[in-house]
Simulated scan of single mutants.
Amino acid sequence: MATGKDRQKQLAREHHERQLKRRIEREQKAKKLAVVGSTVGVIVVVGGIVAATALLGGDSESTAAAASPTPSAGVPTPEGSPTPENTVTPAAGPKAFDAKTGTCDYVADEMGSVKNVGLPPKKIKPKKLPATLTFKTSQGDIEIKLNTDKAPCTVNALAFLAEKGYYDGSKCHRLGNAQFPMLQCGDPTAKADGKGEADGQGGPGFRMAEENLQGATYKRGVMAMAKTMAPGTTGSQFFLVYGDIGLSPDYTPVGTITKGLDILDKVNKAGVITPGPAGDGTGAPKESVEIKSVTTS
């Protein structure tokens, strides 16, 4: 005959099992949420404006463009309203650039498949940051004029990752379509062969706050950073826009493409190998885009 203590132990065990199950489910969903932050997402049409359900990236990038299904930021996660357990809150997340001290905040994050090359330097001098970024790819050079003044911590992180060879040999893993015209890159673990469900889950082992969001738009020629639905989850993944996307202003516009839009048009014309599992028509590009190296100036 069961005693009161036995019943308490059973209830505690069942509670623990439920918590563990919910945690596993959240992690599995997070790894599939990235639209441009990290993995795949669901594209919806709202009032004629096409948006995508978060990321541009899988988990914290974990990072594809992670897009919001509504014009407002901070939308609820698929599990419901944001809570300390399933979202990164502004209080717990990385802080914005502190202009007085010249300090950026990079928070360690081991979610997803990590290629860890260390943390970028936190103390920066914006005027000494690079003004341009060049991706030397298998399809040709893609040059970016960086928004150094408005996104100093993001530019600093990109320059750091470029210097460490983080992007070298990586493949752009997700190509959009007419409704979501972008090419997502920045996952060093992505296979981009149309078979890798884990594509988009790779990250640098850290995350940072979003920048330059006021009035942000994602029109042809914009380079923006991917993230999940939660704030403060920008990592290494990014998306290059070759059309106009009606996303909410939640993803750091880090630069403008000054050379290489013809490459994106060519890749877009070739289409995807196989549409991804989300059923949104996006997937690995048939015209493979491999980043050979990245330089700054």
Score class of each variant (00 low, 15 high):
Thr89Phe: 09
Asp109Pro: 08
Pro78Tyr: 10
Pro94Thr: 13
Gly93Thr: 04
Gly93Trp: 01
Glu85Ala: 15
Ala99Asp: 07
Pro82Arg: 05
Pro94Val: 10
Ala96Arg: 12
Val107Tyr: 02
Asp105Gly: 04
Lys115Gly: 03
Thr101Ala: 15
Ala99Arg: 12
Val114Asp: 00
Pro90Cys: 13
Met111Asn: 10
Tyr106Thr: 05
Thr89Gly: 07
Gly93Met: 07
Thr103Ser: 11
Ala96Ser: 14
Pro84Ser: 08
Ala96Phe: 07
Thr89Glu: 06
Thr89Tyr: 08
Val88Thr: 15
Asp109Lys: 11
Pro82Ala: 08
Lys100Ile: 03
Thr89Ile: 08
Ser81Cys: 05
Gly93Leu: 05
Glu79Leu: 13
Asp98Tyr: 09
Ala96Glu: 14
Gly80Tyr: 02
Gly93Asn: 07
Gly80Lys: 09
Ala92Val: 06
Pro90Ile: 03
Lys100Ser: 10
Glu110Asp: 15
Glu110Ser: 15
Tyr106Met: 07
Pro82His: 03
Thr103Asn: 08
Met111Ser: 11
Ser113Gln: 11
Asn86Cys: 03
Phe97Glu: 04
Gly102Pro: 04
Val114Gly: 01
Gly93Ser: 09
Glu85Ser: 14
Gly80Phe: 03
Glu79Trp: 13
Pro84Thr: 03
Pro82Cys: 08
Gly80Ala: 12
Glu110Thr: 15
Ala108Gln: 15
Pro82Phe: 00
Glu85Thr: 12
Val114Trp: 00
Thr77Phe: 00
Thr103Met: 11
Thr83Lys: 04
Gly80Trp: 03
Val107Ala: 08
Gly102Met: 09
Val107Thr: 14
Glu79Ile: 06
Lys95Ser: 06
Gly80Asn: 10
Thr89Leu: 15
Pro82Glu: 01
Tyr106Cys: 03
Ala99Gly: 04
Pro78Gln: 09
Lys95Phe: 01
Gly112Gln: 12
Phe97Gly: 05
Cys104Glu: 06
Pro84Gly: 02
Gly102Asp: 05
Pro94His: 10
Thr77Trp: 00
Gly112Phe: 08
Thr87Asp: 02
Ala91Pro: 00
Met111Arg: 13
Ser113Arg: 12
Val88Ile: 15
